[in-house]
Computed example of a mutant assay.
Amino acid sequence: MTVSEIAYLMIGAAAGGFINGLAGFGTALFALGFFLSIMPALEAVAVTVIISVVSGIQGLWIVRKAMLQNPKRLARFLVPAVFGIPLGVVSLQQIDVSMLKILIAFFLILYGGFFSLRRTLPQIDRPTPMIDCTVGFCAGILGGAASLSGALPTMWCSMRAWPRYETRAVLQPFNVAVLGLTAIMLIWAGAYHRQTLIYAGIALPTALVAAQLGIVVFRRLKDETFRRLLIGVCFLSGAILLLRELL
């Protein structure tokens, strides 16, 4: 492994870990581009999933109280997602994944751009169990089909007038659970061979430190600032995803 490869690996791990610690999602969108420059796609995804899950577990600790206070809210997103993931995997044979990613990227850019320019954000504070379940189910399908399980929950949760810890108490465990299932599938597919584990062993410490830095910043944010951060990350994620697919 060359010095430049190690540099790409650590930069990607730092970027992915920091955004995970800060926002509770987004590791793949920020790290995968660096990893794909030095390793095959399957290995890159496998390493990304590992640092996403482990970094996410750190984030779970800071929202543990909010999770326990409202477990039904999380379940409305997570349980339907579990049923959606296999449908997404099955649909890989019937859909153009690249086109799906481009459509999602445009949607993220439009959403993020529109709400970033608004002076006031939506204040949806009433219970919406059916919408929550629908978002979770569709997110599971997108996760199985295109590894984009976090897009819809992030957009929907950023429109809710929830405190930042409550918002993260949905996004963080949702992503950890979905990516944990993805990791099991990758183990079954034989993705974690010797070289993949070497890459992961180098990337993981960097990602963990960067995630802690992201958590420190998150603790200092105000609720309104965190909501705007989620919207901004949606826009940036869409732009990165679009550029990756087009180039």
Results as ranks from 00 to 15, higher is better:
160 R>E: 02
87 L>H: 11
198 I>G: 11
236 L>P: 12
228 R>C: 07
9 L>R: 01
179 L>V: 02
181 L>Y: 14
84 G>C: 05
202 I>Q: 06
99 M>F: 15
182 T>R: 13
199 Y>C: 01
152 L>T: 04
83 F>H: 08
18 F>L: 10
199 Y>F: 14
86 P>E: 02
40 P>R: 01
228 R>M: 03
150 G>W: 02
18 F>I: 00
86 P>G: 08
71 P>L: 01
80 P>G: 09
26 G>L: 03
79 V>L: 15
227 R>C: 07
52 S>C: 08
111 Y>K: 07
210 A>L: 09
11 I>F: 13
241 L>N: 15
162 W>V: 03
99 M>R: 13
147 S>A: 13
199 Y>K: 00
105 A>P: 15
154 T>E: 01
216 V>Y: 14
81 A>E: 11
115 F>K: 07
195 Q>C: 05
144 G>R: 07
214 G>C: 07
190 G>C: 03
34 F>P: 04
65 K>F: 00
3 V>P: 12
214 G>E: 04
80 P>R: 00
213 L>E: 00
30 F>H: 09
232 G>E: 06
56 G>C: 02
2 T>Y: 07
49 V>K: 13
78 L>S: 07
57 I>M: 10
120 T>P: 10
213 L>V: 13
235 F>T: 06
229 L>V: 01
158 S>K: 01
65 K>M: 00
62 I>W: 06
177 A>L: 08
75 A>P: 15
239 A>N: 12
34 F>H: 06
105 A>W: 11
155 M>R: 13
159 M>N: 12
198 I>K: 03
228 R>D: 05
119 R>F: 10
27 T>G: 10
34 F>E: 05
